[in-house]
């Protein structure tokens, strides 16, 4: 089966500063991948490159059949990116934001109402301007936009950030449902246990490279289980994530 994401020695630069320093990674359709790594490791850059927001200047980068080295715009309609910012319009209501996003993506508007309810934004919140919402509620709206758009590839950058316990559970459920319906999901998260619990595979990123690629479905594990089987890698990941130690990245894929 053709992978949804196929990166080989992919390099992305920003003002000559390397965002990705030769990433090699393949993600299959329907797979849920958890990206781990310390701050500044390149997780967000990797997601943004897959979304076509960062230019890949060398290597191979094919996402959903689109060659990102030559055309990074076409892929965007098929990808849903939940970044650090919510990318919402403050003056529009929750429903108006969703309808605009869905129409822009040429997705079916029938999913708007159900997405609003699914994300706990029904009732009076539906007609509330986004500027009046709390940060957590705004995050829920951004998640609802993603659900309503129904992209083939979900790229989630710290999706649990700013959400309460119910919101975090909701994100996990939505990830499982998306995967179950055939969508591919890549999650960058510091919520290690939570993200790993829904992931089929854990990929560790450091220095703009893939440092460790844990494996495929069936090998999914918690941090404790990981420590049992890969004590060295688990220790290195823990050290990096707590800002202690770490090392230059290398490709292991």
């Amino acid at each position: 089966m053709t992978p949804v994401i196929r990166l080989h020695e992919a390099v992305s630069l920003s003002d000559r500063f390397p965002l990705l320093a030769g990433v090699t990674l393949e993600v299959a359709e329907g797979e849920v991948v958890h990206l781990r790594g310390p701050n500044g490791a390149g997780k967000s850059s990797l997601l943004r490159a897959c979304a076509g927001l960062e230019q890949v200047v060398s290597g191979v980068a094919v996402v959903l059949g689109h060659d990102l080295c030559t055309d990074r715009v076409s892929v965007r309609r098929e990808v849903g990116l939940l970044g650090h910012a919510t990318s919402l319009y403050d003056e529009l209501t929750v429903e108006q934001n969703l309808r605009f996003a869905v129409r822009a993506a040429r997705a079916a508007e029938s999913g708007v109402a159900s997405s609003i309810e699914r994300c706990g934004l029904g009732g009076r919140l539906r007609a509330t301007p986004v500027r009046r919402l709390s940060a957590g509620q705004r995050r829920r709206v951004a998640v609802a936009v993603l659900v309503a758009r129904r992209p083939r590839l979900w790229l989630l950058d710290e999706p649990h950030a700013g959400l309460d316990a119910d919101g975090r559970d909701l994100v996990d459920e939505l990830v499982r449902e998306a995967s179950g319906s055939g969508a591919t999901v890549v999650v960058a998260s510091h919520e290690l246990d939570r993200a790993s619990a829904v992931a089929d595979r854990v990929v560790v990123v450091s220095g703009g490279r893939v440092l460790e690629d844990e494996g495929t479905r069936g090998e999914s594990r918690t941090r404790a289980a990981c420590a049992e089987e890969m004590p060295g890698a688990a220790a290195r990941v823990s050290a990096m994530e707590t800002g202690v130690g770490g090392r230059e990245g290398r490709d292991v894929a």
């Binding site: 927001l53 849903g80 990116l81 970044g83 910012a85 919510t86 919402l88 319009y89 003056e91």
Partner: peptide, 17 residues
Amino acid sequence: SLEASDGASDGLRMSGL
């Protein structure tokens, strides 16, 4: 400025418009 608030410029680029 509507498109710049809270990173909406990424949203505009990701919108598919």
